[in-house]
């Protein structure tokens, strides 16, 4: 009895401590909030379904077990019941419709900037995953950071997601759901922090040996503090192409800040080959592909080798 009690206490402690930091259900911004609400809404219905099944299950097993009915009881021959089939088809369909409507609404709502701040111009940050680090470019502010970002609170951020190599996934659970980063493709993700604080972001799609440590920090601060940080960053040393190409090599790195961005040399959302060329020691200049006969090529738009995706 004692050991059973001790075991229960142990389990209870473990469960409670493990359930105290359910980040996804503790949203810090409007995107995560919409998602958390959808999740809680669905949990309600799922609990109902689970309850119905569990109760029926228990009642039936208790009532019709052989020890109760005795070995002489011969069950009746029942082939089915059309009414019941209709009931347990229609009710789930109704539940699904009730779930599907807000789901589709939310899916489309998340393709746009959050409503409450739709009057503000979103801050654009290009987020690029490179094995195994995150490179962030602020094109308007002309700064670049590695493995961390600062954002102002109550302001929509438009993340433009791409990868220099593997398919990663950009995820800041406190602020919202994730989206994949792919080479030669550009995905868009709107996020926003409504509270000042430091949030953790990471790669959520397995990319090999260094995947687990491919994390970054997000500091959400007041508008003034943010602008101060931007100014400081603009005074940081310039990003050179040499330094940038170092970042293309595999490995982890510490947080770094630069002025200028890599977008002047490459947009990984359009160019899938840059990182490979750097790693192979090849030239990354487009004009240097001397083996190719360009005379009959269609150079007017590089759209053929890339696609825009809006999330």
């Amino acid at each position: 009895m004692k050991s059973f009690f001790a075991l229960s206490m142990f389990l209870a402690v473990m469960v409670l401590s493990g359930c105290s930091n359910l980040t996804v259900l503790d949203p810090k911004g409007p995107v995560a909030e919409q998602q958390a609400n959808l999740i809680l809404f669905s949990i309600g219905f799922m609990l109902f379904i689970v309850l119905v099944v569990f109760v029926l299950f228990t009642l039936i097993l208790v009532k019709y077990r052989e020890r109760k009915s005795g070995p002489e009881y011969e069950p009746p021959h029942i082939e089915g019941n059309v009414f019941l089939e209709i009931v347990w088809t229609v009710i789930p369909v109704i539940i699904l419709i009730v779930l599907a409507v807000p789901t589709v609404q939310t899916i489309f709502a998340l393709e746009e900037a959050p409503e409450a701040t739709s009057h503000k111009d979103p801050i654009v940050i290009h987020a690029t995953s490179v094995d195994w680090k995150w490179v962030f470019s602020y094109p308007e502010e002309n700064i670049e950071t590695v493995n961390y970002i600062h954002i102002p609170e109550d302001h929509p951020i438009l993340f433009k997601l791409a990868s220099a190599d593997s398919m990663g996934s950009f995820w800041i659970p406190s602020l919202g759901g994730q989206e994949y980063t792919m080479s030669g493709m550009m995905n868009e993700l709107y996020l926003q922090a409504d509270e000042v604080g430091e949030y953790r972001g990471r790669n959520a799609n397995f990319t090999g040996e260094g995947f687990t440590e491919q994390v970054f920090t997000v500091t959400a601060e007041s508008q003034e503090d943010y602008e101060e940080w931007v100014e400081e960053a603009q005074d940081a040393p310039e990003l050179t192409q040499e330094k940038y190409n170092e970042l293309m090599l595999k490995g982890h790195t510490e947080e770094q800040t630069f002025s200028e961005t890599h977008l002047q040399w490459v947009d990984h959302g359009m160019d899938a080959e840059y990182a490979t060329k750097v790693r192979n020691g090849e030239s990354t200049d487009e004009d240097d592909s001397s083996e190719m006969d360009h005379s009959e090529m269609n150079h007017d738009d590089s759209e053929k080798d890339s696609e825009e995706h809006s999330h």
Binding site: S289, K304, D305
Partner: peptide, 12 residues
């Protein structure tokens, strides 16, 4: 289709 990476294509 079309992903010829700047190289020759079927039309040629």
């Amino acid at each position: 289709v079309g992903r010829t990476a700047g190289g020759p294509g079927p039309e040629e």
